Simulated scan of single mutants.
Amino acid sequence: MSLRRFKTIAAAAASGALALSLAACGGSGPTTATSTAPSGSASASTIEVESNLGKHSITAPPQNVVALDNRTFSLLDSWGVKVKAGAVKLMRPDLSYKKDGTTDIGNHREPNLELIVAAQPDVVISGQRFTQFNDEIKKLLPNAQVVDLSPRDGEDFAAELKRQVTEMGRIFAKEAEATKLVEDFDAAVARAKAAYDPGQKVLGVITSGGEINFAAPTQGRSVGPAFDVLGLTPALKVDGSSTNHEGDDVSVEAIADANPDWILVLDRDAAVAANNGETYKPANELLKSSAALQNVTAVKKDQIVYMPQYTYIDEGLTTYTEFFNAIADAMEKAKA
């Protein structure tokens, strides 16, 4: 596409948004005044939201939405939010957006930002893999609200997940639903903490491409935060551990020597390969067929808990609620 055509599209989108803004400002009144929403939708009102990108004034619920953050796709779908455009290729296969004609702007490696502009969104829900494009999207859509509620580094992870859902509930007029999801999450955390014996050592792993890799406490992708949220005792710590999406290259012999009582597993291929229709070896087969791990307590006692299948592309609050309940189920059963 030529630069001239791209600028024309961007200008048209901005002009349309400006016209809507001027029409809305034709009369005076308080900034939180309630207005009539389109038929079939909740009553709309202007709210103030603060995200990682600053403060936003949003008419809630917004009518034209672009969705880019993996942590929020299933949340939006469960709330029946219509999405004009989004990173459909990154969505789990059971979401309605995969089938309802939602415009696919591509993945975070080569996104088509032109399609985001063409959607003329009121709100862009950005974050996680798309954070790197926030500034560019804001420049292209000066009259849209670009919201990023990704968990922030250095903040309590559980609190950040709850903050994301709570603020999304405000944006989409689903506050009661958001409150229930937060309550369910807190209940799952409480169950898992009550079921866990701190004297038992826990180890996290990520399986990817047929390999078993180490997921460090706190830092390890998806699995790592569970150590902090639940107060788990690490079976192994490695200097220079990372947030690598495939885990850290630590030998299975080192994992065996750590002899964890419990193993928590992120099966990356279960999300990526399965979502692309590719064959892969499931994590449970990899762990149970590894000769080096056969004498590990967690393997011998089958004290292995797997994160939900699509965790790698859906790391939101409800995924962790399901995971923590699975941990509680397993640990309660082991105590019985």
Rank of each mutant, 00 (worst) to 15 (best):
K281R: 14
L264K: 03
A283F: 00
L264M: 08
G277H: 09
S251F: 04
D302M: 12
L286Q: 02
E253T: 07
T279P: 12
S290K: 07
S290N: 08
N295E: 12
A283E: 01
Q294I: 03
A298R: 00
L293N: 01
I255A: 06
I263T: 11
T279I: 14
T297V: 15
N276W: 15
E253H: 08
L266D: 08
A271I: 14
T297L: 15
S251C: 05
K288L: 08
S289V: 00
P282F: 02
I255N: 06
L287Q: 12
A292C: 15
E285V: 00
A258V: 05
L266M: 13
P282D: 03
V252W: 11
A271E: 15
R268N: 05
D257A: 12
V265E: 01
I263M: 14
A292N: 14
D302F: 14
V272I: 15
P260E: 10
V250Y: 03
V252I: 13
I255Y: 06
R268T: 03
A273G: 10
A274H: 14
A258Y: 04
L266R: 08
D257G: 11
N295I: 10
V296N: 05
S289W: 00
V272P: 14
L293G: 02
I255H: 05
V252L: 10
A274D: 14
L286A: 03
N284Q: 11
I263A: 13
V265K: 02
N295W: 08
D267V: 00
N259T: 10
I255D: 05
K300N: 05
L266Y: 08
W262T: 08
A292W: 13
A298S: 02
S290P: 08
D257P: 11
K281Q: 12
D261Q: 11
L264I: 06
L286C: 04
A274C: 14
V272W: 13
N276C: 15
Q294F: 03
A258D: 05
A273H: 07
V265Y: 01
N276S: 15
D302L: 12
I263R: 09
R268Q: 04
T279R: 12
V296M: 06
V250I: 05
S251H: 03
A274G: 13
V250P: 04
A274M: 14
